[in-house]
Design a protein around this nucleic acid. Sequence first.
DNA 1: ACCAAGAATTGACAATTATCAATCAACCGG
DNA 2: CCGGTTGATTGATAATTGTCAATTCTTGGT
Lengths: 232, 232
Amino acid sequence: MSDSEYRDIQKLDLFAQMTDDHFASLMQGAYVQNFPAQIELITEGDPSDFLHVVLSGAVDLFSEWNGRATSMATVRPISTFILAATIKNAPYLMSARTLEKSRIALIPSQDVRSIFDKDSGFARAIVTELSQCYRSVIKAQKDIKLRSSLERLANYLLRQQKHVGGGNVFTLDFEKRRLASILGMTPENLSRAFKGLQPHGVTVNGTRITISNQMGLEEFAKPNPLIDDAST
Amino acid sequence: MSDSEYRDIQKLDLFAQMTDDHFASLMQGAYVQNFPAQIELITEGDPSDFLHVVLSGAVDLFSEWNGRATSMATVRPISTFILAATIKNAPYLMSARTLEKSRIALIPSQDVRSIFDKDSGFARAIVTELSQCYRSVIKAQKDIKLRSSLERLANYLLRQQKHVGGGNVFTLDFEKRRLASILGMTPENLSRAFKGLQPHGVTVNGTRITISNQMGLEEFAKPNPLIDDAST
DNA sequence: ACCAAGAATTGACAATTATCAATCAACCGG
DNA sequence: CCGGTTGATTGATAATTGTCAATTCTTGGT
């Protein structure tokens, strides 16, 4: 692991508050690896041997049941995933695959758990991180239980727009098929949902979105901070 | 608060590992209150002033958006709710209402946060609890994204059956309208879903469920520990 | 620049789920 | 025991979402 990677990881909220000593010993057993795109990093049901940190690239968390699959979330640098499984020493609930060439740090779960016991700054950071994760999933659950697919798409577009600066023209950062899966619909239905948003001032050209009627879209989408704000 | 309540709360996983001192000071500012049925205890969006502990009765966690409402979970004694909001000092993402006459302890969030900083046993317990909550929501999310309403009902019945001992005859512990909401469907659709499970060996009489063909139902439901096991 | 492979779109249709209205059943207070 | 209220069920219908098959569009590799 390079010095700059070491420092990048240390700067993560999750690790910033722990002692240098503890961080060093956590990194002792860790290693960094490059993966090509479309590699399955972990499989749901497996024991959680490593806490993963995405240093570059992107990772899709997904789940399967009875021949069906759904994307649960996308992890982008620099952040960790499967913290809860690591802490509980329980099997992964989701699988993970690289979406593109990715550089990923692997920290043995055993080390995370034992240092968590020793370092209260680390413990606090873990609590904050887990609360954040929990609240994110609750929001996703509300999104899917309270909104139609058209409404979910509209709100997703507003979130993405805000996320990349708020301009009227912006670009999707997912493949549409994966966006569809994240939003809980089929690719065909997503296509039609984009069409359905045209009357509300949305134009799509490939991956490029133009919002020509901001007010109209917001009036339709009715975004709500308790569902759509990442921070709160 | 009575001595027996005090001890009941102290026995909760969340509090069992903290020092008696810290627990005492946590209870110092806490108080217990009786609520009738159908009282809204907290409203989503409000600041999280108290960590709640259900001592008796039952509480429904629900959420609303744009005139629609959905039940997210039911909290039964003895357990806490809205821990994440308390820890993050962030607004509630869900509302809570009593389903029946309930006795509830209220612990000031500020106290929880300050003692969390001092007591590492407590911090650890909070981490475990949050991980548990997180994983529960992930499972719920998988349930709803990967299964049809009929499949969700079938698996719910199997979970409930196991939960109450595994017998062929058991009783629903929800109103059907709330069960419908928890499962993400309308009451009408739940009625029809029960009918739809008849060919798979399920009979309903009011709140009484009879499973006459266990294997058949399981074959249809295809329960999966990574969705349906509460523990893992 | 061209081809092949994968992704996106479209149309036709089917399945699922929701809505609305009308009973029906259960429960509770007097 | 009765009437009234609430929840459950049913039927008819509509809206939403999914499936399948056929194009069309993109894109990466040569």
